[in-house]
Each structure stands twice: as C-alpha cells, then as structure tokens.
Design a protein around this nucleic acid. Structure first.
Lengths: 216, 216
DNA sequence: TAGATTGTTAATCGATTAACAATC
DNA sequence: TAGATTGTTAATCGATTAACAATC
C-alpha cells in the first residue's frame, strides 16, 4: 500500500478526515448535543458542510433530512468504521525524547490503542520503565512483535537506522508503520506507511512566512 | 491564510514537497553526488520523476537538458526559496513531555530555526532549563514574543487552553503557528496555521489495517 | 403545509502523470 | 551526430464545491 491505498472504496481524503469528525462528535456529545446538522459538525471539525455531507455519504446514509445526525449514533458508527472498537497494539522503536513523549502522549494512550512494547539500542535505557512499559533491547524487536501481536510499529529512532528498523518490523509481520525519522522509507506492497516530520512542518511555515515578508 | 494560501504562485502541493527535496539533496551531496537527474532526486525523495520536474519548474529553470541538476546549486536555491538562509525564532508553549521533546528534537535545532523561548503554566516547571532555554511562566508569553521577535509559535499545551494560547500569540503578532493539540483552532485571515495530530495518524493507520483484516 | 436539512448530481478546480519536443 | 534528460504540454484523475431535488 505505502499510504493512500483506497482499497475501501472510501476516498483517502475522506479517510483522513474521519478521525477529525470522531473528535468533533465526541466534543459535541460532551457539550450535551444529541443531534447536529452538517453545518454544526462542519464548524466543530473545521471544514465546510458540503464536505461533511459528501464524506459521510461514503459511509452510508446516517442522517435524517430536515433534522440532522444523531450525535451518538454517528459517533459510534465512525468509531467502528475506524476500528476504534478494538484494541491496536503499538510498539515504539527508539525511546529518546520523542519516543518517550509519544509513549506518554494522550494520543497513544487513547482508547483503541495500547502501547505494549518499547525497544531501544542504548543499553543505558534498557530496563527503564516508560509509561508503564519496560524498555527492552532492540535485538528483541521480533520477539516483542510476536509476543504482543503488534499491529502498529512506530519509528522514533535516528534516521540512519530507521530503514533497518522498518525492514525488521515488516519481516516480523507488522503492516502499519508510523515514521518520525526524517528519511524516506521503502516498504513492500501491502504495508501502510505514514510519516510525520517536524522539521518539514517548520520549513513549510517558514516558506509562507518568508513570502509574506518578501511581498510586503 | 489558515494554511494552503497559495500567495506565491507555487502550488501548495509543491511547497509541501520542497523540504523533502532539500533533505534529499543534502543526502545526495553528503554521498558525494555533484550532479543528479530528476530520476535520482525522485528516488531520494520518494516521488516520481515527472513530479520532480514539474515541481522544480515552478521555481524556475535550474537543470541542464541531457545532463541533470547541479546538486549544490539546486540545494542552495531551494534553501533560499524556503527561507533557510535566515534564522526563524521559535517559541514553544507547553513544556510537557511533547514540548520537551520538540525543544530537543533535531528538527527544531536544525539550521534555520532557533528555539528562543519556552513557556508553561506549571509553576513547578518555570525556571527549569530545557535545551539551553529557561522556561518562563505563560503569563510572560507576550513579553517573550516581543523580546525575541518570535516568528513561529508552537502549541504543545493541553487542548482546552490551546485556543487561548493561539489567540494570545496572534494578538502579539505571531503569524505562523504549529499546533500539536488535538483541537481545531481558529485564526484570523493572514495567519498561517498547521497542525500535527498524533492520535489522528494512528487512527488513519488503524482504519486501513482494519480494512485489510475485514476484507481478508 | 411550510421549513429545514440531507444525499446526490454536476461543475469546477487543482494535482498528477504521460509523452515528447527542445536542447545539452 | 547519437544519447540523455529537461521543461512543458495535454490528458487524466481525484477532490472540492455549489446547487437542488428528495424527504423528514
């Protein structure tokens, strides 16, 4: 797959917004909303209402004309669609500052995900407990994956070892990988790879900022 | 602006790839390449060569037909285009695990960026030194921005205070904001806002993973 | 019935890709 | 001259948006 493999019939652009709708619906629910219109949901998710209706239409017909969407019903439906009704076991490779932060982050401790294994190459770090999990040596990566049935592998290692980590994860059967290392990874067909690059985000902001000052 | 404001004439899809080309060219340069074809650069950046040529054509005509691109020349040109020839002052609001990791990350310490200020709401954390910078109380946000001429504000606070932080940054003159809080922020016209959401990345992977298992 | 809002269609827009003339 | 590779054009593809008939 290597990202954007629209196997599901649902456009990738829509898939990427589903988690946002889920978050928005949870927020609406907590604020006491029981029903909302596409306009309400659009405002909460930061998009326009045409996009909301189009996106939701890909999941099926869950609204009522003249009325809107039942918040709880829609939320549980999207939740099931995204797979948040089951637990996904996560392994983090590389427990430096970032790996440490990820393990402790709300996103990784949210319902639906369980950080079950941490590995690092630094002997000093092995044995340490982070977010309730004992860090193991990187040589035990394969054993960790097998033991915990890891579904999602997260790479937070230095860039020069990222491809090797990735290859080993794939060989051990992991088919979903999230890469934080600033390097392009290669994965075989059928493996889903996403990447988050902090430097790149700053650079994109800098590009626009520069344009503003140059133009002005 | 609120993202994707194609003021520059360069398509936003291209802008997002420029940092990747820059990284790829640096890697090629370090490996001793002096000239590379669009095919070589494409391989290093994880895209196809048609996209490379099309993207680069938006910057001008910097290759030689039959030969390729001069690695150093192209690198320095893109570097200037992105604004990496100047220093951008960065402030991070919220020095929890994530803010801490960001301040120490390679991306934030890269050439072109300088983390000049850190603020937090927790009195316990104020006064602590992180990545060589002393954490100050969040009430000093405006003073920090003015004192250090902050160009980029990073929000790594809990979600419920993120909008307030954002508003204060904007009021203090910051026009580029990177948000790590899992919430949709509203900014006025002319402010460039990007967002990174860790939970969302995991959920997108989970969606595809579930589809694979359901279909299989 | 009148008002509201969905689900869908059709139009528009932008991004990707293939192909090839230009030219080193 | 022959081979290689760019820069650009035109075709394709997918995503966004506006508009409105269907219907609660």
């Amino acid at each position: 797959m290597t990202n954007s493999g629209s196997t599901s019939g649902i456009p990738e652009a829509t898939v990427v917004r589903l988690p946002e709708y889920l978050r928005a619906l949870s927020a609406l629910s907590e604020s006491g909303w029981t029903v909302c219109s596409s306009d309400d949901l659009a405002a909460a998710a930061g998009v326009n209402s045409a996009k909301v209706r189009k996106d939701l239409s890909h999941l099926g017909s869950y609204g009522r004309r003249g009325v809107g969407y039942d918040v709880e019903f829609l939320r549980s439906h999207i939740s099931r669609e995204i797979g948040m009704t089951q637990e996904w076991s996560v392994l983090i490779a590389g427990i430096g500052n970032l790996g440490h932060a990820l393990a402790n982050s709300a996103g990784f401790q949210a319902r639906g995900f369980r950080t079950v294994a941490l590995v690092d190459a630094d002997p000093q770090r092995v044995g340490e407990t982070v977010a309730g999990v004992v860090v193991r040596d990187q040589s035990e990566l394969e054993a960790c994956i097998a033991q915990h049935h890891v579904a999602i592998g997260v790479i937070a290692t230095p860039p020069h070892v990222a491809q090797d980590m990735c290859d080993r994860m794939v060989a051990a059967g992991v088919t979903s990988i999230l890469n934080f290392a600033p390097v392009v990874l290669t994965v075989p067909e059928g493996v889903d790879l996403r990447r988050v690059d902090l430097a790149m985000e700053l650079q994109i902001l800098a590009f626009h900022a520069q344009r503003r000052t140059v133009v002005a």
